[in-house]
Design a protein around this nucleic acid. Structure first.
Length: 574
DNA sequence: GCTATGGATAGCCTAGCATCCCAATGCTA
């Protein structure tokens, strides 16, 4: 999307301005970039419909920046930006991505050593050329070298699903210290963002130094970035960084609030505090020198005139205004899911039998489980044909009989994950689809179609009366594959008309739908289902990542059909 | 450069830590 391209340019401009130590403008460009990035509509469309004035309605976009957006839409270039690129022909994002390198350093590295990119930076630091520059030293050079090595190895961000288990382990480990009164993850982990830069852990403790010393001696640490009396930062051998911050108990709530973020959310909160004649920082909420709140997050939000909100909502995407009006949604809870409708069994090459999956689901406290194996087009995944689906149905019926005899209310539902062919048709005959409890349809081939074609393809599937659910609707794979070119609004319209459900796929690398689409679907009145797409019973636990994503998209129980009773669900499918 | 207030001007979130140089700056969160 063109939004992304322009946002990227604005981020670059912000960095160039930082290099020149220009006041306040960098913040303005960054803000505009962020607004574009999180904007659901295409700026091209906005400009087409509402022109220059429409651009100015985007928050953080005024006369000048709107002009630059217009210039880009018309010419594909922004002269102001081209000027800076000429003046500083450096890859600023790449260089500032190195831990410890910021715009001012980039400026000096360019000025003295003509360093343009990561390659130059690595070469110069290896050759020991950086240590002799003014305001640089041996230590800085060494840190830069390590930063470069890390960046080359990882792209710098990790999937939430790869990180959360380790974070929980660390927290459990720290809890063994009796000095620790309270502990929580904070930052993007607590907000359950789909990718995590680094991990923040917050502790309230009586003897901070003891906690810090224990923390920096945890197993699996490969590097200690720094440690002071109240904070420490380490890198684990798994590759990601963990920051620990220790605060006194009376400030735990304000520190948790502060370190949970997001940054944008906090900026607005601080502004609200200032408007009320107060000051908010990580130590508390103050009137003059008097602390009026800080022990809990609840009291801080309350004093600022709103109720406390779930961390997943804190992205400054309207949650503060909504909270002030007292209209925060009651978002779906982590225990609200009653069953998983997207599980692959050993019939299509998954790891477990249907009975094993059912038993695992019962253990998770589910009331039902849906078996949805691939269908015949996906030969590589051992997709089932019509005959096999009929045979599979018999096995499931037998299993359900068994549960009935055991007077268990648990139910196995029979579905499939059929393929949406390039023309939008489904690779299984209607008369077989009709006999299943439900049908999931998804795209597994030919991802690169034009926007018009792809939208039409999906809408054709949505309108098929046998199709109940569209799996991983946008097809993106985090850090690996972009979403398909689609007109999401059109798809929503069709889904609403036909009561078709969109999946929130919980697989850590998919999380598809993503949060802004979930919000849009909810607003459009389109129902969703949170599924894991399990190929092994160990994958069933991924459901929490899908739930997190749903929460980030403000979804409530009524929006998520597998938080419903099985009878309601079957009624919807029929 | 944006926003808010009022029609031109003020204000823009805040603090700890490391490094380099011995008080200030830059980076990060």
């Amino acid at each position: 999307m063109v939004n992304q391209e322009i946002a990227q340019i604005f981020y670059d401009i912000a960095q160039f301005l930082e290099m020149e130590a220009v006041a306040f403008k960098p913040y303005a460009y960054e803000k505009a970039g962020l607004a574009l990035e999180t904007l659901a509509e295409d700026v091209k469309e906005i400009y087409k419909k509402e022109g220059f004035e429409g651009l100015k309605k985007i928050p953080g976009v005024g006369e000048n920046i709107a002009g630059k957006i217009e210039e880009y839409l018309k010419t594909g270039k922004i002269k102001y930006y081209e000027g800076y690129k000429k003046k500083y022909p450096v890859n600023i994002q790449e260089l500032t991505a190195v831990e410890g390198v910021g715009p001012k350093m980039v400026r000096d590295l360019w000025k003295y050593l003509k360093i343009k990119n990561l390659f130059d930076l690595e070469k110069a630091s290896r050759a020991g050329k950086i240590r002799d520059l003014p305001h640089f030293g041996e230590k800085t050079e060494k840190n830069i070298l390590q930063g470069v090595a890390f960046l080359k190895r990882e792209k710098g961000r990790f999937l939430l699903g790869d990180i959360l288990p380790t974070v929980r382990e660390i927290i459990e480990n720290l809890k063994s210290l009796k000095e620790i009164k309270q502990i929580s993850e904070a930052g993007s982990v607590r907000r359950r963002k789909e990718t995590i830069g680094d991990v923040d852990i917050l502790v309230a403790a009586s003897k901070p130094s003891k906690v810090i010393n224990y923390f920096i001696s945890l197993p699996g640490i490969v590097k200690i970035w720094g440690n002071g009396p109240t904070k420490a930062s380490i890198r684990l051998e798994t590759g990601f960084d963990v920051d620990l911050r220790v605060v006194p108990e009376k400030s735990y709530g304000s520190a948790l609030q502060y370190f949970t973020g997001s940054k944008e959310h906090n900026i607005v909160l601080r502004q609200i505090a200032i408007n009320k004649g107060l000051k908010l920082n990580e130590y508390g909420l103050f009137r003059g020198k008097k602390m009026i709140a800080g022990k809990t997050e609840e009291e801080i939000y309350k004093k600022l005139g709103m109720s406390v909100m779930e961390p997943e909502l804190r992205e400054n995407t309207g949650e503060i205004e909504t909270a002030i009006k007292g209209r925060l949604p009651k978002i779906i809870g982590y225990k609200d899911i009653k069953g998983d409708l997207h599980c692959h069994s050993n019939w299509d090459g998954g790891a477990n039998s249907i009975e094993e999956i059912a038993q695992a689901a019962i253990k998770m406290g589910y009331e039902y489980i849906g078996i949805s194996d691939h269908t015949k087009f996906l030969r590589i995944e051992h997709g089932l044909n019509e005959k096999q689906l009929v045979r599979q149905r018999k096995e499931i019926e037998k299993l359900n009989e068994k549960f009935k005899v055991q007077s268990s209310k648990f139910k196995v539902l029979h579905g499939c994950e059929a393929n949406i062919m390039p023309d939008g048709s489904i690779d299984i005959k209607d008369e077989v689809l009709e006999k299943l409890d439900y049908v999931i349809a998804g795209i597994h081939s030919q991802f690169k179609m034009s926007k018009g074609q792809m939208t039409k393809r999906i809408i054709t599937a949505v309108k098929n009366s046998n199709v109940d659910i569209i799996s991983h609707p946008t097809g993106r794979i985090i850090q690996r594959r972009d979403e398909y070119q689609i007109d999401f609004d059109e798809i929503l319209k069709a889904a609403k008309e036909t009561n078709t459900i969109l999946e929130i796929n919980s697989f850590p690398g998919r999380l598809d739908l993503k949060d802004i689409y979930i919000k849009k679907a909810k607003e459009a009145g389109v129902k969703m289902v949170i599924n894991t797409d399990s190929h092994h019973i160990d994958h069933l636990r991924f459901i929490e990542y899908g739930i997190a994503q749903a929460r980030r998209g403000w979804a409530e129980k009524e929006d998520i059909v597998n938080s419903w009773q099985v009878e309601e669900l079957l009624k919807l499918f029929s």
